[in-house]
């Protein structure tokens, strides 16, 4: 009986290559992009049908002036936190590529991400007390809370993923300059969530 050895670089034996993992992540993020596209498209349809296009006269949103306005200033600060967390994560990745641990950068990213979720939660509580909620304020409340809820959930999962990367690096130093697919993929996901937020921030708070 010959001792046949598998020569194929089959993923069941050696794991997918970092490039393959990255490709898979990008495909998955395309799908995530469509999820948010669906939500945003729904938001547009509802809003335009209710008050017309934003550049039309009398298209004030929300149409009911008694509804509370969104805290634009606080959220602008929050947006700065989230955007800078993308940079800190990137610096962390660069540090790992240079052979350093990158732990401080990752910790800073976790802190910024958690702050974003925290401020978002405070904002939700605030709006709830002002009289805007899933079931209050009509389609204005519905779309705001469902869309920011979906995004907030993504940020929350992102924070958990970065924490997982942080702990792995802290305990095992598993990310080497040549091979750190988990870190690279979580970074991709984090940047994606960040970019989605910029769209949502402009659409929900500014326009």
């Amino acid at each position: 009986m010959s001792t046949a050895v598998l020569t194929h670089e089959s993923p069941s034996h050696s794991g997918a290559s970092p490039a393959t993992c990255k490709f898979g992540m990008i495909i998955f993020l395309l799908s995530e992009g469509m999820l948010f596209s669906g939500l945003i498209a729904g938001y547009f349809v509802l809003r335009w049908a209710a008050v017309g296009f934003p550049w039309q006269p009398g298209a004030a949103w929300p149409s009911d002036p008694s509804l509370p306005h969104l805290p634009v200033f606080l959220t602008s600060i929050n947006t700065i936190f989230l955007v800078s967390s993308s940079f800190t994560f990137h610096f962390g990745e660069v540090a790992v590529q240079k052979g350093k641990s990158g732990l401080w950068w990752l910790a800073l990213t976790i802190l910024l991400g958690a702050t974003f979720v925290g401020i978002q939660a405070v904002e939700w509580m605030h709006l709830y007390h002002e009289g805007l909620w899933f079931n209050k304020g009509g389609i204005y409340g519905s779309s705001f809370f469902v869309i920011t809820g979906f995004h907030g959930l993504h940020v929350f999962i992102g924070v958990l993923l970065i924490t997982w990367c942080f702990l792995r690096q802290l305990l095992t130093r598993c990310f080497t300059p040549q091979r750190h697919p988990a870190l690279a993929n979580v970074a991709l996901y984090w940047h994606f969530v960040d970019v989605v937020w910029i769209f949502l921030f402009v659409l929900l708070y500014w326009i």
């Binding site: 495909i27 799908s31 469509m34 999820l35 948010f36 669906g38 939500l39 729904g42």
Partner: peptide, 10 residues
């Protein structure tokens, strides 16, 4: 990839 997430949103 492109169609299913829209149903998920709905």
């Amino acid at each position: 990839i492109f169609a299913v997430p829209v149903l998920s949103a709905a």
